[in-house]
Write a protein that binds this DNA or RNA. Structure first.
Length: 647
RNA sequence: GCCGGCGUAGCUCAGUGGUAGAGCAGCCGAUUCGUAAUCGGCAGGCCAUCGGUUCAAAUCCGAUCGCCGGCUCCA
């Protein structure tokens, strides 16, 4: 047995150390600074505790919270700190799971009484105590039976379940933090003292293991960082997200509202929001026509038989409003547009010469979403899909997909988004029975999707086995101004509906063939996209979309007539301009215009009136000084025509 | 749908069993003003809705509707 082992460090230097040396001991000799920052080591590719004795020759590197895995370990240990504190204060709680998340961590507890905000404050103080005591996190191994006995004695029934399900082998891994012991595979940071900054954020209900019907756990969410500055930065970002929240900005900017009297999840577009929507839709319609789509309209209620044929009644019923009974017939409010478009396709015999047939509709649908899931404009019960269905031959599939993805990116870029990611959901080979359509169709379709993404150079993840049963799909996500991803466009093959409706076209051989159907939505829902736009721009729409592009501000009543002329001239030139002739000080008018996020304020006083100019103030850049009205008009026109990103 | 929090004037919020309050917004008046809030006055509420407890309910209890944070769901 060798007395020493060989450790290869990241820069390639090789150290000989006594067997049983821990990564932390080694690191303290190497680099004291890193020793304080490191949270975990990677030995031969596996994450290991810094305090785990090294027994074999290994390649070793050290991770800090700058590495995603390091941050996960750090947050995981933070969750343990939370659980340790909770157990000291509330010894009766039953522990669930406590993992790290993207932005922090949570730990689940079962307890009869709910945790109150005061409880959270107490828990935070206890966590700080345990942190200040710098309690070590030590790993222990227990024989499986002993582990079960331990948890049974403590009445930790959820933990018993976890040990039963998750423990591998005879020995079960535990971590001990002071009086707290937890079944856990680790790894963890060496001691609690490193968790310099943390904050508990919320408490909420969560089903045990996420299964409806299981007991409700109380999940305490928190976040943590190695320094207070980083925590402050995180809290600022939360604040920034709150500042952009479309649910706040919508009413403030008079864009839209919800009305209790009308019902939950039903949107009222006010004049200003309606104007933005009109501009969005105008752009989209022009693009549809340019790209060979044909606009259609289909009814909002249709006979229920149609939804039997399409299959929605079977697999989508829980999301559909209840049917409406008439004396002889039953009608259904539409949750989707596809069947309507199919009926148009079927209205006459189709030739291969008619294909591709691209039917587009800004189709308003109603879906009965469960009460608890509604969320501003992002999750509603009535919304308009920028929907289109493309019926084409199998040979045309590749080209159609390429056109769709290009269209999608164009539709998002035009509205100020620049960063995208895609997901390709593919079928799971070996289970043909789980999918509609033929294997060769699937392969052709998936090939077309993948080639398109590669050609266009859009980064994508292939999600094996993630496809829905009726066809593979591409989902495009965008990343907004503050780095949040949103799933928007979807381009999906449908091998199911053409079968169910027995669609066909007459090919060159004179025989009927089955067309391929592609379902695609670029914004998804106009409501949702609008909500995302509001947050992306923080309510400050670019000039071409701004409901009010400029407001004219007379300094006093003496200049009101001139200001009125300025406003009138710009209006007749086609711009959206308001006159603020209120008996208020200039500062007050400017403040109100800034809060309304109007791109330009045109100050009109004695000087401007005499010179025939306006003093321009930009909401973003402040006072730009006086200029001839004609110059400003030209600048405004340029900003609108180029759909410039900001004022 | 589930767990928890919440619902008072257009908005933001005080008011914990005994005569509904403030600021902003609105209206009226004064002021005529140079780049983020001028001053004064007036008006404005079935305290979400319905039911219960009580001599008495914004306040306590129940149900319903809606909102918020999560869970679940998201063809």
């Amino acid at each position: 047995m060798a007395e020493t082992i060989k450790v290869t460090l990241p820069e390639g230097q090789v150290e000989r150390v006594p067997r049983g040396t821990t990564p932390l001991e080694l690191l303290r000799r190497q680099n004291q600074r890193l020793a304080e920052q490191a949270v975990v080591a990677m030995s031969n590719g596996d994450l290991v505790d810094l305090t785990e004795p090294l027994l074999r020759d290994t390649a070793l590197r050290f991770l800090t919270t700058d590495d995603p895995e390091g941050m996960f370990v750090f947050r995981h240990s933070s969750a343990h700190l939370l659980a340790a504190a909770v157990l000291e204060l509330f010894p009766e709680v039953k522990l669930g799971v406590g993992p790290p998340t993207d932005n922090g961590f949570f730990y689940e507890f079962y307890r009869e009484q709910p945790f109150t905000p005061e409880d959270l404050a107490r828990i935070e103080r206890k966590m700080a105590e345990l942190r200040d005591a710098d309690v070590p996190n030590e790993r222990r191994w227990l024989p499986r039976a002993e582990a079960m006995k331990l948890y049974e004695q403590q009445g930790q029934k959820f933990k018993c379940e976890l040990v039963e399900e998750k423990a591998e082998g005879d020995q079960v891994s535990f971590y001990v933090t002071g009086k707290f012991i937890d079944f856990c595979r680790g790894p963890h940071i060496p001691s609690t003292g490193r968790i310099k900054a943390f904050k508990l954020l919320s408490v909420s209900g969560a089903y045990w293991k996420g299964v409806e019907g299981n007991p409700q756990m109380q999940r305490i969410y928190g976040t943590s960082f190695p320094s207070q500055a980083e925590l402050d930065d995180f809290l600022h970002r939360l604040e920034e997200a709150r500042r952009r929240d479309h649910r706040r900005l919508g009413p403030e900017l008079d864009l839209f509202s919800f009305q209790d009297e009308a019902g939950a999840g039903l949107v009222f577009w006010h004049p200003k929001g309606g104007l933005v929507r009109t501009l969005m839709e105008d752009w989209l319609r022009a693009e549809y026509l340019r790209r060979g789509y044909q606009m259609v309209y289909t009814p909002h209620v249709m006979r229920i038989d149609l939804w039997k044929t399409s299959g929605h009644l079977d697999y989508y019923r829980q999301n559909m409003f209840p049917p409406m009974e008439e004396e002889h017939l039953t009608y259904q409010l539409k949750p989707m547009n596809c069947p309507g478009h199919i009926l148009i396709y079927q209205s006459r015999l189709r030739s291969y010469r008619d294909l591709p047939l691209r039917l587009a509709e800004l189709g308003t649908v109603y879906r009965y979403e469960r009460g608890g899931v509604l969320h501003g404009l992002l999750r509603v019960r009535g919304f308009t899909v920028d929907d289109a269905h493309i019926f084409c031959t199998p040979e045309q599939v590749g080209e159609e997909i390429r056109l769709c993805v290009e269209f999608a990116l164009d539709a998002l870029r035009t509205f100020g988004f620049e960063r995208f990611e895609a997901e390709l959901s593919a079928y799971e080979p070996g289970h043909p029975e789980a999918y509609a359509g033929r294997v060769e169709d699937w392969e052709r379709a998936e090939g077309a999707l993948q080639r398109t993404l590669e050609q266009i150079g859009l980064p994508f993840k292939r999600m094996e086995g993630e496809a829905v049963f009726y066809g593979p799909k591409i989902d495009v996500k965008l990343i907004d101004a503050i780095g949040r991803p949103w799933q928007l466009s979807t381009i999906q093959f449908d091998f199911n509906l053409p079968e169910r409706f027995d669609l066909s076209y007459i090919a060159a051989d004179g025989a009927p063939h089955r067309p391929v159907m592609v379902h695609r939505a670029l914004w998804g829902s106009v409501e949702r996209f609008f909500g995302i736009l509001i947050e992306h721009y923080a309510g400050a729409f670019p000039v071409w979309l701004a409901p009010v592009q400029a407001v004219v501000l007379p300094i006093s009543e003496k200049n009101a007539a001139y200001a009125g002329q300025v406003a009138e001239r710009l209006r007749s030139a086609g711009f959206r301009v308001e006159l603020d002739a209120r008996n208020e000080k200039l500062q007050a008018k400017i403040r109100d215009a800034q809060l309304q996020k109007i791109p330009f304020m045109l100050v009109c006083g004695k000087k401007e009136e005499e010179a025939g100019t306006v003093s321009v103030r930009s909401r973003a850049k402040g006072d730009l000084g006086p200029r001839p009205l004609g110059d400003f008009e030209g600048e405004l026109r340029r900003l609108v025509e180029t759909r410039a990103a900001d004022a």
